[in-house]
């Protein structure tokens, strides 16, 4: 168990290192190698030669690539100074970079977006897991019934309709026609929990519809397969009620593999639900990424990319560790 734990953690650290190398490679090294001037990318075409040279010195763009990478990692771990003569720009650890275009550190910028994205992802996840699993179980138990067919048709719609379609439709119906909800917006939970809820409910439902569909289909298929397992027959042969057989023995086996998929989905969502944030005008990480791309603000794009990768790696690590708790065959095998 302990060695498994250590193995997973070491793995995650290595993955993160590889991720920083690749990201660094793309954002710093490739322009250097291909001969385009990265300094130009960082400050924009309109800059004069003096500020271009300043940027070059600050970012150390004339250093060998491994040295640049070393400074980059140092920034992540211990923070760094971008200096050109007396002109020093400080960036605190974990330094994901400095946006010379907007004159601010990337890390605090992104951190301020995390509550929005986290609220969106958490609320949607609660909804889709509950709805998806419940629908899947009921469909499996009433296989072939009207309910099953209706649920599976709905699920098919859910997986195949893109979010900008369902999102716009939801906005149109619930806000413009019915007027049931205020415009979607993010209010910090601690400021006003009710506004937090009403401002996010529509994006949650829309996002949950997409994911719940997949979870319903998976749960249904897993449950049908599980109900044919010998150990389910054993559970029945002991005289357990159908409720215990399905709700305990069946569900336990059905939910375990879902944990992995959930981790992936949740991690991806944390990395920024670009479309959803766009459709509902929420200023989270996805929105930030989009804005940065539009403005060609390389340090922010790099920061979002790295942060997304970190989320995914960390969530995967958590899933792996969780899995070893809930599946004894992994823990002891």
């Amino acid at each position: 168990m302990l060695s498994y734990l250590i193995r997973r953690i070491v793995n995650a650290v290595i993955t993160l290192l590889v991720v920083t190398m690749v990201t660094f490679g793309i954002f710093f090294a490739v322009p250097t190698i291909t001969g385009s001037d990265p300094a130009l990318l960082y400050i924009g075409k309109t800059a004069d030669q003096a500020s271009l040279d300043g940027i070059r010195t600050k970012l150390g763009l004339d250093d060998p690539i491994p040295v640049q990478y070393g400074k980059f990692i140092k920034g992540l771990v211990a923070g760094r100074d971008y200096a050109s003569g007396n002109d020093v720009t400080h960036c605190d650890a974990p330094c994901l970079g400095y946006s010379f275009k907007t004159e601010q550190e990337v890390t605090p910028l992104l951190l301020s977006d995390i509550p929005v994205t986290l609220s969106l992802a958490l609320g949607a996840a609660v909804l889709w897991v509950l709805i998806g699993v419940a629908t899947g179980v009921l469909s499996a138990l009433r296989r072939g019934s009207f309910l099953d067919r209706a649920a599976m048709t709905g699920a098919l719609a859910g997986v195949s309709l893109p979010i900008y379609f369902t999102g716009q439709l939801a906005l149109l119906i619930f806000i413009h026609w019915l007027g049931w909800l205020p415009d979607t917006a993010y209010t910090p939970f601690l400021e006003n929990p009710a506004s937090w809820f009403t401002g996010l409910i529509l994006p949650w439902v829309t996002l949950a519809f997409l994911f719940a569909a997949t979870y319903a289909r998976l749960t249904r298929a897993n449950m049908l397969e599980t109900l044919n397992e010998d150990y389910i027959r054993t559970a029945r042969s002991k005289g357990l009620t159908e409720r215990t057989v399905i709700g305990k023995h069946g569900l336990r086996a059905v939910l375990t593999p879902l944990v992995t998929i959930f981790g992936l989905d949740f991690g991806t969502l944390l990395a920024g639900a670009i479309l959803t944030e766009q459709v509902f005008n929420l200023r989270g990480l996805g929105y930030q990424a989009l804005t940065a791309i539009r403005q060609n603000d390389l340090p922010v794009i790099l920061g979002v990319t790295l942060l997304a990768a970190i989320f995914i790696v960390v969530i995967n690590l958590i899933v792996d560790l969780l899995y070893s708790v809930i599946d004894p065959r992994v823990r002891l095998g």
Partner: peptide, 8 residues
Amino acid sequence: SAMHPYYT
């Protein structure tokens, strides 16, 4: 196969 893999 007759024993549940997740229960002792």
